[in-house]
């Protein structure tokens, strides 16, 4: 039987100050998956990653990484895992080479192999020309790539990236995507948390959304996107309009005299809208999705969940 990369069972975490960060989350991630863990700030994502990587103790529940329990057999579980945390957590006075080689040593790699692997990953992540400079001299994007090289040096079966592209420019972000995609294609299971939902939509096959310490959704990205029943488009108009066109089944409003917002149900055709605009003598210069599709779903789920919480507490 194929082992799951990650199995989380009834995970509860209550901090000493009484904050309930996780309220009984169960989740599994298949071997080889590219998995997105999403949720608003404070939803419990970082606590969950902290528990998986043994940086946070559980209140109850169990986490298994490739069948090894983090709570009962921590050392074996950690051998399968590589972590790229949200915050920089390396010694800023050490060089990138030392940081990566030392991490390899903690995983039992001999020094010659550690040096070989460190060079391989520092080169792949375009950091080799800085390998002997103090890491405090690296730019923000370089520091993030250094943490990826460090996490990859023991070639883990499961790589967890906690907002790896936060604050990096689009060019570096796309390079990082390519690198991570390559790692996943080579067989490493990847779990990603991100606030860039475009990133999750483009990279991930499966997704879990957590809010207020509970699992709101856990499905594959395709099914989730298929469940989207409305899309919002923005149309740039050549001629100004004073009244938005009235089209049956489509909600329209003018954001300004040359920008029209249209909320269109999935079963409706866009042709109706264009016909109405054509009749009004208005020509469309360009059209785009107002938000990323996953972002639209994400916001809806989080809002629904928050509304349920409010109603529940009011009752």
């Amino acid at each position: 039987m194929q082992k799951m990369a990650l199995e989380i069972t009834d995970l509860i975490k209550t901090y000493a100050n009484g904050v309930e960060a996780l309220k009984g989350v169960s989740l599994s991630v298949e071997k080889g998956d590219f998995f997105a863990l999403l949720g608003p700030n404070g939803a419990g994502k970082s606590t969950m990653i902290g528990i998986i990587s043994s940086l946070v103790n559980t209140t109850s529940g169990e986490v298994k990484v490739f069948g090894d329990s983090v709570q009962k057999n921590r050392s074996n579980a950690m051998r399968h895992l590589g972590l790229v945390p949200q915050e920089h957590n390396f010694n800023q006075f050490e060089t990138p080479l030392d940081i990566v080689v030392n991490q390899a040593g903690y995983y039992g790699l001999t020094r010659p192999l550690a040096l070989e692997r460190a060079e391989k990953y520092l080169r792949q992540l375009q950091l080799w020309d800085k390998h002997d400079k103090p890491s405090r001299q690296l730019s923000g994007g370089m520091k993030r790539r250094l943490m990826i090289a460090r996490a990859m040096v023991h070639e883990p079966e499961l790589l967890i990236l906690d907002e790896p592209t936060a604050g990096v420019d689009i060019e570096i972000r796309r390079e990082m995507w390519e690198f991570i995609k390559g790692i996943n294609e080579a067989g490493t299971t990847v779990i990603l948390t991100t606030h860039y939902l475009e990133e999750a939509e483009q990279l991930c096959r499966n997704i879990a959304i957590i809010n207020h310490g509970k699992l709101v959704e856990n499905t594959d990205v395709k099914s989730l996107l298929a469940s989207l029943d409305m899309e919002t488009f923005l149309l740039d108009l050549r001629e100004p309009m004073s009244v938005p066109p009235s089209v049956e089944g489509i909600s329209t409003r003018l954001l300004d005299s040359t920008q029209l917002e249209a909320i269109i149900p999935k079963e409706r055709s866009l042709n109706n809208l264009f016909s109405a605009l054509d009749q009004a003598g208005v020509r469309v210069l360009s059209m785009r999705n107002k938000t990323n599709r996953l972002e639209e779903l994400f916001m809806r789920m989080i809002n629904d969940d928050n509304q349920d919480k409010t109603e529940g507490s009011a009752a």
């Binding site: 990587s53 043994s54 940086l55 921590r74 050392s75 074996n76 950690m78 051998r79 895992l81 972590l83 945390p85 915050e87 920089h88 957590n89 390396f90 010694n91 800023q92 940081i99 030392n102 991490q103 903690y106 995983y107 039992g108 460090r150």
Partner: peptide, 17 residues
């Protein structure tokens, strides 16, 4: 220093007992 700079986490997430 390692605790304050959080690089103690390099050891805490490693398999080292």
């Amino acid at each position: 220093g390692a605790k304050f700079g959080r690089h103690i986490e390099e050891l805490l997430v490693s398999p080292l007992p």
